[in-house]
Design a binder for these strands. Structure first.
Length: 517
RNA sequence: GGCCCCAUCGUUUAGUGGUUAGGACACAGCCCUUUCAAGGCUGCAGUACGGGUUCGAGUCCCGUUGGGGUCACCA
């Protein structure tokens, strides 16, 4: 009953809209009230795609919203792509984002092993079971014959790749004879040839294909190893996965998966296919195209919380207008039925905005802690780090913005006197000269050197000149930084860089103005 | 090419037959102000197209167009 209730809560309205509600609820009913178990099954390639991370998040949330179990399974059977330390990247990424798995290679569990390469021995027996049930068969066709077949198909303009089911009805004696003779073989699934197969996806609803479209797919390769599709189904079943969360590139092969479950007599999982994360309208986001991975984004100064939060909303949306969530809030709110159907373009500009907000919401202390290394990478002088960081916080969107914003502290940049011209304050080089000439002695006389004291020293000068504060303080900022955008106003900059450097730069600026005007 | 899937502002999304089509980011402007920001307010901007069904369609149906995915002894 509980399961049924959460199904309603998840989907309620969506059911009707998709016209699949009956099927889904029947499916959920027949889950026998089992605890929700989801898995994230990445291959260890050495980095984490943002799309992968999002899939992991969705799988994690789907389990945790129901107090279920989140499982990590490493799919390391991709021959070419094994990278040292790659598994650690997966562990690290998941961990630092708080997505703690309940079962996995390192923590174990009752359904191990959780590394696919260690499971290779178990699949053939399952395939043989299918052969015995008449759901699969031995195929002795050679690669040469298949190639020839494909060539003929090409020549005839037909669909290439469809196996002609040559070995589908070999008689028992012949099979035994060829097996005994040690002929190499594969095991193929016996697909239905007529009718249709449908399955229900939680996101896409009912998906139906004609069985005539389905090939007698290979389950066990001639080296005795399972194909990915077969291993996946068996693993998911053996591990008790109730909800399969994966990319929608699997959508069109899901009927085949379902037929496999059916052939075994197993209960299929709830399918949750997620739309792809795109780089632009035409291409998927991928490391191969040089697109940023999660690691790259972190290295560029994006906060992991901001990345995760942004990813949550890329293809999923909650009911209200709130966009900022902690992981715990995500878990409470999560409803997989609210995942979108259409592809979403990864927008770095919006991520930057999220990042800026996350930075802005930090305490000054927290921010100073993470910003300090970026500051110190370019600034080697003694400065008021706390004041600098307090001013930097609302002014930087990503951490890697910091060096260019503070580089002027270490070394005055080349700058044009035109910077002193400002429409808003109705000032120019001459005005700047006037202001700075008055400001310099006032500052020089100052004993105490902090933001308030500095402003206190400037205020009488401003009053005396009868101008707006900015008229005098804007030029001060330019004189001290050579830039129009600085971490704080003129008095902030002075306080940050200290009296000695302030006076030095002020005098340099005065000398230059006098010389060039 | 066959098959599957998708389609609301530039981007991300809300929308479950009756809404002035809402939010966020971006952009523009204004306010505040000790530069630049941050913050506050306002504005700009969208239902791909064509047919139906209906008193009424962003919402349902069909088609067109556009896009994505998939068709291996890869995973």
């Amino acid at each position: 009953m509980r399961v049924f209730l959460f199904a309603l809560q998840w989907d309620d309205n969506v059911y009707r809209k998709r016209r699949a509600w009956r099927l889904i609820s029947r499916r959920v009913w027949s889950m026998k009230m089992s605890k929700v178990r989801t898995r994230f099954a990445p291959s260890p390639t050495g980095y984490m795609h943002v799309g992968n991370l999002r899939t992991a998040l969705y799988a994690y949330l789907t389990a945790k919203h129901e107090n279920g179990t989140f499982i990590l399974r490493i799919e390391d059977t991709d021959q070419g792509r094994i990278v040292d330390g790659a598994v650690d990247v997966i562990y690290q990424t998941l961990k630092e984002n708080g997505m703690i798995w309940d079962e996995g290679p390192d923590v174990g569990g009752d359904y191990g092993p959780y590394v696919q390469s260690e499971r290779m021995g178990i699949f053939k027996d399952y395939a043989l079971q299918l052969v015995e049930k008449g759901e699969a068969y031995y195929c002795f066709c050679t690669t040469e014959r298949l190639e020839k077949l494909h060539e003929e198909q090409r020549a005839a303009g037909a669909a290439v790749g469809n196996y002609d089911r040559h070995c589908r009805n070999l008689d028992k004696e012949e099979i035994q004879r060829r097996l005994d003779a040690g002929e190499p073989y594969v095991i193929r699934q016996k697909m239905p040839t007529e009718g249709t197969t449908k399955f229900v996806d939680l996101i896409y609803g009912e998906v139906e294909v004609k069985n005539s479209e389905l090939e007698d797919q290979i389950l066990i390769k001639s080296d005795g190893m399972p194909t990915y599709n077969f291993a996946n189904v068996v693993d998911d079943h053996l591990m008790g996965i109730t909800h399969v969360v994966r990319g929608n590139e699997y959508l069109s092969s899901s009927p085949k998966y379902n037929l496999l479950y059916k052939a075994f007599g197993w209960e299929p999982p709830v399918y949750i296919h997620c739309p792809p994360v795109m780089k632009d309208a035409h291409t998927k986001l991928s490391k191969r195209n040089g697109d940023a991975s999660y690691q790259d984004l972190v290295a560029k100064g994006y906060l992991k919380e901001a990345i995760l939060n942004y990813l949550l909303l890329l293809g999923w949306s909650p009911k209200g207008d709130e966009e900022y969530f902690t992981l715990d809030e995500m878990i409470k709110l999560w409803n997989p039925a609210w995942i979108n159907k259409s592809p979403a373009i990864f927008d770095i500009v919006k991520l930057r905005a999220f990042n800026a907000t996350y930075i802005n919401r930090m305490s000054n202390e927290e921010f100073t802690k993470i910003a300090r290394p970026y500051v110190e990478s370019v600034v080697k002088r003694p400065i008021d780090m706390d004041l600098l960081c307090a001013n930097l916080k609302p002014r930087c969107e990503i951490l890697s913005d910091i060096p260019e914003r503070v580089a002027f502290i270490q070394e005055m940049p080349e700058y044009s006197l035109e910077l002193y011209r400002n429409k808003k304050f109705k000032t120019d080089e001459r005005g700047a000269l006037t202001a700075l000439e008055k400001l310099a002695p006032a500052l020089d006389a100052l004993q105490e050197w902090n933001r308030d004291a500095i402003y206190g020293a400037c205020a009488p000068v401003i009053a005396e000149l009868g101008v707006k504060a900015g008229w005098a303080l804007y030029p001060l900022g330019i004189a001290l930084s050579g830039m129009t955008a600085t971490p704080g106003g003129g008095t902030d900059v002075a306080a940050i860089i200290g009296k000695e450097l302030t006076m030095e730069r002020l005098n340099d600026a005065l000398a230059r103005l006098r010389a060039e005007l």
